[in-house]
Amino acid sequence: MTFFVKVLQIQSIVHCLIYIDLLILSFSSLNPAVITVWFLSVSAIAMFCNHPVITILTLTGAVLFYLIRNKNGHLRSHLFFLVLFLILSIANPIVSHNGATVLFVMNNNPVTLESLLYGINSSAMIVGVLYLLRSFTQIMTSEKLLYVTGRLSPKLSMILSMAIRFVPLFSKQGQKVNDTQKVLGLYKDDNFIDDIKGHIRVFSIVSTWGLENGIITADSMEARGYGTGRRTQMTRFGFTFSDGAVLAASLVLTALCAAAVAAGKISFNFYPRLISSEFGFMGIVGSAAYALLVFMPLLIETEVKLRWNYLMSKD
C-alpha cells in the first residue's frame, strides 16, 4: 500500500515538472520585457563588434529564427533583403579605396579585396539586424509594446495607446467624409487638381473632427477619474520562472560576450590588411556565449515542439 502511494507521488511530481516546463509555449509568449532585453542585447553586440564570426552568427541566427516563425512564406521580403545585401556589399569597394590588395583598377581608382570584404561583412550585419527587427515587430504586438513602455512610464504608455487607437479611427472617418462629399459633388470635374483640392479639404475637416471628438474623450477620461492621483497599470503579462531563467541567461551570456569584446579578444581589422585578434580562452568563451544567445529562441522553439510531440504521442 505504501509503495503504491509512493509511486503515485512520484508520478504526480513528474507530471508537475512537465507542466512547469510547459509554461514556455514558445519564445514569443515570454514576458515582453524579457524579449526586449534579448533583442536589445543581441543587436547591440552585433552592431558594436564587427568580427566576421559574430556577423555570421547573427545572420544565420536571425534568418533561421525568421524562417522557423514564418515557414515558407514571405518570399518577397527575402528577395528584398538579398538585393539590399548585394547593393550594400558592392557599394563599399566602389566608394572606399583603402586596403593593400588591389583586385583591379576602375576609372583610375583601385578596387581592393579588403574593402570588398568589409562591405560584405557590414551588409551582412545590417541585413542580420533587419531580420531580427522584422521578427521583433512580429512578436511585439501593440499590446506588448505598451506593456514595455508602461514599465518605463505609465503616462507615455497611456498616450501611445490613445495614439494607436486614433490612427484607424482617423482614416475610417476620412474615407466616410470622402464618400459623402463625392456624392454631394465636391469633386466637380474629373480632373487631377480638383481631386487634390478636394482631398485637402477632407483632410482639414477630419482634423477638426478629431479635435472636436477629443473633447468628448477628455470628458470621458475625466469622468472616470483620470488625473486624480497616482495611476497603476494593469497588465496581462505575468513574470514566470521561465521568464526569469531566460532573462538571467540572456544577461549572463551578454555580459560574457561584452567582456571579451571589451578586452579586445574579439576584434577584427580590415585595413590595411585583414588581421583578427588572438581569441584565446576569453575570446572563445565570448563567441560561444554569443552563439548561445543568438540561437536561444531557436533552441527554445525546437525543444518546445519536440516536447509537445512527445506529450501528444504518449496518449
Binding site: 501593440s142 499590446e143 505598451l146 497611456m158 495607446s161 490613445m162 494607436i164 487607437r165 471628438n213 468628448i216 474623450t217 470621458s220 477620461m221 472616470r224 477619474g225 483620470y226 488625473g227 486624480t228 492621483g229 497616482r230 495611476r231 497603476t232 497599470q233 494593469m234 496581462r236
Partner: peptide, 20 residues
Amino acid sequence: QQIVTDKVWHELAFGPENLG
C-alpha cells in the same frame, strides 16, 4: 468617442487604473 484606449480589456481597466 468615449472610448479612450485601443484594447477592450484595457478600456475596462482604465477607470480602476486611474484610481490607483
